[in-house]
Amino acid sequence: MTEWLLDAVLALLLLALAGGALHARNRYAGVLLFIAFGLVLALIWARLGAPDLALAEAAIGAGLTGVLLLAALARQPAGSGAEGVSFARHRLAAAAVLVPLLMILLQGLDPLAEQRSPLPELATGALGQSGVSHPVTAVLLNYRAWDTLLELAVLLLALLGARQLGPARFEVERPWPLLRAWSRSLAPLLLLAGGYLLWSGSSAPGGAFQAGSLLAAGVVLLRLAGVLPALRWSFWPLRLLVLLGLLLFLAVAIACAWFGAGWLVYPDGWAKPLILVIEVAATLSIAASLSLLVVGEAREASA
């Protein structure tokens, strides 16, 4: 009974927060509601038995997206846009499209309740040879490693795309002394937590994306507190850090194809160390890319 009540409250809260974020009177409130929405969504994933997704949603969906939105908000010229204007006709049109769509979707989703996929059993069955003991990590870095490699390229492209939007300078104002002190004590903790998530990824929920976004959160915090110098794209070690995960992953794939049994076929006994090395490199790359997205300076200091 209490579990049922908890689920119902979470679901209603999620809907209310989504509505609030969409229809907030001003943008700032909307962004805050959106962050809260991400946190509740993370809780719901956890309730549904998907702790990996919950961690990713909390770190990326609520944390970094929230920071990105707040940063975008800070760059808006004051008093611009349509604060507090309601678009009654837009809402009606959206409802007219979405309500029938929802009805059709429910009809299609309904028969899926009884279906059972053979894949989860296959995935757990092959865990012995995969080099890791957590099925999600095995899927991400062994069975479907090619998807993960391409996902890293997606992140790189997002960064390159954002770079095209010209020199948007990130102004760090004189940091508040308390923020400075806090960030100094919080950053090592975030580093520790990130390292733990990365290491535990092989046997429990966690992994490169979650660890990377935690590290990125630490970097963003330090940058906001003015402890770190500006992150510039023209600084080549930073670019190497961004590319490291993808380069290493590709090097492993090519080496496997050239010397070994085939594209991304890890040699016997090498799966665990290779996966670990790839994960460490990917974590660093993800952390570097995400921090560049949030607090990077597009301006070229020296070409």
Partner: peptide, 15 residues
Amino acid sequence: WLELGGWQAPLAIRF
């Protein structure tokens, strides 16, 4: 056909 990672088809990706 190429089975990526050397796993059988429903589990892994095929080229």
